[in-house]
């Protein structure tokens, strides 16, 4: 039964969204790239999380290595050691990467990045030209490493017996305790500490309020703090801020551009000159890569003017 709802999808619309690539190469766009080109594109777009050699930064995925580790205690599952199909890499990078700027790469760039990942896994040499023509020539080492779900045979048939209700075992001994490992986020403990602090504080005179350096719009700061969530994957602020994939932003407002100590800036930012003020921040936050072509910051930019205003106010607040 048809309801006559919806409208016919136009070919241009289908082309815009239907970009998935299958293991047999269906869906691949025309294009090509080699590992040499890929190395540079990878450095600009991917290395911030995945490392210069695809070895991974912090908890971000490692894309290379792990050959022969799948039966080990902690297998290292990378594109080279684990992924059964090359199409998966192309498909994912093409549609979902870079993180925070998905769908900004040209097909040639994606071919080059995939070639570079293959190269960093020692699967091709650096001149290897990956294209829609050569795509199926690449053999993935773990292509034969998967079986279809066999739980019905290996598990369900065994685990359907009427279960034991009494005298099921002779003894029960503790073999492992979570509190020994101690990896659970603390909270109850934290509350107790707060209580203590409150009691102690009550005995002392109230401290003088600290003088405010410049009047900030508190509402705008709060709004900016929300917008800043988008930045938190790479930038920290506050007393315990640490350098992550991007520099710490305490004090950034009013500071020289590219002045955070110890951070390895892109060439373009390092040589840009000037100060982070309302004008430069507005231009940068609107479109980082338009202002500084080649910046490592893989963020597409803030679309709304109000978000930019709020963000700048927030950055001022962490700069006082």
């Amino acid at each position: 039964e048809k309801h006559g709802l919806g409208r016919t999808a136009m070919p241009e619309e289908i082309a815009a969204w239907d970009k998935d690539v299958s293991p047999d190469g269906t869906g691949l766009p025309v294009g090509s790239g080699n590992a040499l080109d890929g190395e540079e594109i990878f450095a600009d777009n991917c290395a911030i999380c995945h490392g210069d050699f695809a070895e991974g930064v912090d908890n971000w995925p490692k894309l290379a290595g792990g050959d022969g580790t799948l039966a080990d205690e902690d297998p290292l599952k990378t594109v080279g050691s684990y992924w059964p199909y090359l199409s998966t890499s192309f498909d994912y990078i093409n549609r979902s990467m870079p993180f925070g700027s998905a769908q900004t790469l040209e097909p040639d760039d994606v071919y080059a990045i995939v070639a570079y990942i293959l190269y960093s896994n020692d699967l091709v040499d650096e001149e290897f030209e990956l294209s829609n023509e050569t795509f199926l020539d690449v053999e993935m080492p773990n292509a034969g490493g998967f079986i279809t779900d066999d739980r019905a045979e290996t598990e369900y048939s065994q685990w359907r017996a009427e279960p034991c209700m009494e005298n099921c075992k002779e003894s029960v001994e503790i073999t492992m305790r979570a509190s020994v490992l101690d990896v659970t986020p603390e909270e109850e403990g934290a509350e107790a500490v707060v209580d203590d602090v409150v009691e102690e504080a009550a005995a002392e005179p109230a401290p003088e309020p600290e003088p405010v350096v410049a009047a900030l719009d508190a509402e705008l700061v709060a709004q900016g703090e929300k917008v800043f969530k988008k930045c938190k994957s790479c930038h920290q602020v506050g007393d315990n801020a640490k350098r992550k994939t991007g520099p710490v932003l305490n004090g950034v407002f009013g500071a020289d551009i590219a002045a955070s100590e110890g951070f390895k800036y892109s060439k373009v930012m390092a040589g840009y000159g000037g100060v982070w003020d309302e004008a430069t921040l507005t231009t940068f936050l609107t479109s980082p890569r338009k202002m500084m072509k080649g910046t490592k910051m893989s963020f597409a930019g803030l679309k709304k003017d109000e978000d930019i205003l709020a963000m700048i106010e927030y950055l001022k607040s962490v700069s006082q």
Partner: peptide
Amino acid sequence: VESREETS
């Protein structure tokens, strides 16, 4: 499709 979420 054998996408990232069903292979890796």
